[in-house]
Write a protein that binds this DNA or RNA. Structure first.
Lengths: 297, 297
DNA sequence: TCATTGGTTTTTTCCCATAAAAAACAGATT
DNA sequence: AATCTGTTTTTTATGGGAAAAAACCAATGA
């Protein structure tokens, strides 16, 4: 049966909201809350019932008066606020990381279901989705085959990645000078500079900045297929992030420098210069990915 | 519950096999049959039981003697030999083609399940897969949204398609002269010539030849992501094939000519010449796709 | 000795049931 | 009139189970 994790998540969010308001104040209409929490009114009403039952609010005609502020014990634990699909995704990633998943290895959905404590339907759905990352193969009536996080995979991935990146960058410099993306680029440049200054402490923050930067480039000329492919890249980075800690600080520092050169190339609007900087960065990224693959073996 | 369509399909295939053998002859071992039908021995055994029960074969120790040849009534009807997944796929395609699926329209999985006479799980699985074609969007806990077979879609599709095709073609001419792909190219060239000669009668056969040709180009340097993308293209062609009948013969004739020029370009191994021919073909394809989109509106 | 066959155990495919959540509808309130 | 709330209808998410198919293992016979 469907879990009520959304309810619990919304309930927790609502508690946060209550905490910001003064006692005796009104919480607003159901519609307003639904918009604020980004859920349906049905869920809001369930939450309101819950809040009332917990004595946090009192409903008086149409007013929802705040009776007391929430205590930490009022919150649902985080473990209960994530959907089965999300749980499966996380567990599967963790499983793949530590489990010795060799190329060609079979994966039993049933077995995973047992290990993860979920139904095979949930696993099946996830494996189906995951197969679009090119790491998993499914043949009808047969078992799942893990194709492996191999050099071949990395080569194929980077090849497409480079094509897409170069194309988007080329489109970016053709952008109108008034485009808001230029300002966004300025902001991201500043963040790069700031991060570089403090690289010793904050080098782990690069990963997120990296994604934001590349997805900004893609926005120059949106293409759903490239966006979908970008998800694959994000997954890979998430995936091999943990066993790629060696020299992480140094690698990230280099990457930031390269990004900055790349950004300057974009801002110069000089194709030659931009392409050169972009290529340099892509080459480093490819080499770094391939090297991490060797480590793995 | 799981359907036994594979069994029935295999049974029919086995009947074909029986028909080619002489009465009293042996059908071979279970393993041989399994390999021939590309199914597991379990299924083969079920089929053999079926054949025995129908009096087609008699099992005598290890020999499976053919007692009589199959009659048309021995076969299972075609409708019973396709898996639920395949049925759903076909019905969904048909539904999308004639149903007025406008961009932004919501799709109810439950409703489709009722219409198609299948379970909602089967529909759900298919919609999930279909969403990777970029025509369908899904947000958690929310409805499916048909993004629409719009010009935007066509633009984004062709952009990627052209990048991939040009890249593969460039790799193709770098292929070693001894590569078997060159012979394959020769064969496909001949088939183009043959088809062109008989274009009046056989113009519908072009679609399949087209796919074979482009997938051969891709084989020069296999890339799983490009292959996956190729599936999207195939789907689109299948999808808009029926309402694209206008001038089909003429369009196909032109396409064959362009293919031939493209093939000559490849064989010349002259990048300039090949790229020019390839671009010409891609431009025509893009224009033709966009035009069919206008018709639709 | 080794391919072949007979049982047994997993695994996948598929439908059904049901709680949760969204959406639609309708009446009430400001 | 427009917003808000109460109620009903749809739709999605997820577990569970049964049959089919595959995989595995043991026994048999040529």
């Amino acid at each position: 049966m469907k879990t009520n994790t959304l309810y619990k998540r919304s309930y927790n969010q609502c508690l946060d909201l209550v905490a910001t308001r003064t006692l005796g104040g009104d919480l607003g209409s159901e519609n307003e809350l639904a918009a604020a929490l980004d859920v349906s009114r049905t869920t809001v009403r369930a939450v309101l019932d819950g809040l009332t039952a917990a004595g946090l609010i009192g409903i008086d005609k149409r007013a929802k008066r705040i009776l007391r502020h929430p205590a930490p014990t009022d919150y649902y634990p985080d473990t209960e606020t994530e959907s089965v699909a999300t749980t499966v995704e996380k567990k599967f990633m963790a499983w793949i990381q530590q489990g010795d998943c060799k190329p060609g290895q079979h994966i039993s959905g049933l077995d995973l279901a047992r290990q993860f404590g979920t139904s095979n339907s949930a696993i099946r759905e996830h494996l189906n989705q995951f197969s679009y990352f090119g790491l998993l193969e499914r043949r009808p009536n047969s078992r799942w085959v893990f194709r492996g996080f191999t050099e071949e995979f990395a080569e194929e991935l980077t090849e497409v990645r480079e094509m897409f990146e170069l194309r988007s960058a080329r489109r970016f410099i053709e952008l109108d000078a008034k485009s808001p993306l230029w300002q966004e680029l300025d902001r991201i440049e500043e963040q790069h500079v700031a991060l570089l200054k403090d690289i010793d402490q904050r080098f782990m923050e690069f990963s997120e900045l990296d994604q934001r930067f590349h997805s900004l480039i893609n926005e120059a000329a949106p293409n759903r297929f490239m966006e979908m492919f970008f998800d694959v890249i994000s997954m890979v980075f998430h995936y091999h992030y943990p066993w790629n800690k060696r020299d992480e600080k140094e690698r990230n520092a280099v990457a930031i420098q390269e990004h900055l050169a790349y950004i300057r190339g974009l801002k110069s609007r000089d194709p030659e210069r931009m392409m050169a900087a972009c290529r340099t960065h892509l080459d480093t990224a490819r080499a770094s990915l391939l090297r991490s693959m060797e480590v793995r073996r």
